[in-house]
Simulated assay, not measured.
Amino acid sequence: MNETPTDVLHSSQAPEPVGLYPHARKVGNLLFLSGVGPREKGTKQIPGVTLDETGKILSYDIEAQCHSVFRNVRTILEEAGSRWENLVDVTVFLTNMAADFQTYNRLYAQYFKDCQPCRTTVEVNALPTPIAIELKCIATI
């Protein structure tokens, strides 16, 4: 990660932000991650998502998106000098709690078995790109 004097961090390995914001910002010994979705670096592709010609979601696989978003969070943490085990707070945004919570919760339990940060999970109407999950995280460095 490239660090500026203002502690704004841009990952060279994570998917590019979809707006004017950094991947993370370091304040003291805390690392605040911007919302992280399941997109893959260098592409607009979203694992497990099928779109129609207008960009509307035809189908999606929440399991594939969960694996990808957790992988992206880990990438940003490690590149910023932190690690998965240093997560202290995770806010999860799901676009369909009724359909996706059970799968997400099962996978979350696998990934966070040995690291149990505080967690809030909320349903939102939509996210900025055609994704079904996004994480907002705080970790220590």
Rank of each mutant, 00 (worst) to 15 (best):
K44F: 14
P17M: 10
R119V: 15
L87G: 11
V27C: 05
N105D: 12
G48H: 05
E85V: 03
C137N: 08
A109T: 06
E3R: 15
N105L: 01
T120E: 15
C66T: 01
Q102F: 13
H67Q: 11
S82A: 07
E79I: 01
L20M: 13
E16C: 03
Q102K: 15
R74Q: 11
V69P: 00
V49F: 00
E63D: 07
A98L: 05
T54R: 13
L135T: 11
D7C: 08
E63W: 00
Q110S: 07
I133C: 06
A109F: 07
D7N: 09
T75P: 01
I62R: 04
F93L: 08
P15R: 13
N96W: 04
F70Q: 10
R71H: 02
N105E: 15
D114Y: 09
C115Q: 15
A109R: 11
Q45L: 14
A14Q: 12
G19N: 12
P17D: 06
D52A: 06
D7F: 08
F70D: 11
L33N: 14
G55R: 13
R39N: 03
N86A: 09
D100E: 14
N125P: 08
I62C: 06
D114N: 13
C137M: 03
A109Y: 04
S68A: 02
L30H: 05
V90Y: 07
Y104T: 10
R106A: 08
G42R: 00
T103L: 05
S82K: 03
K113L: 09
F32V: 03
T54I: 04
T129M: 04
F112S: 00
S59V: 03
P15F: 14
L31S: 06
P130I: 07
L107R: 12
V122D: 15
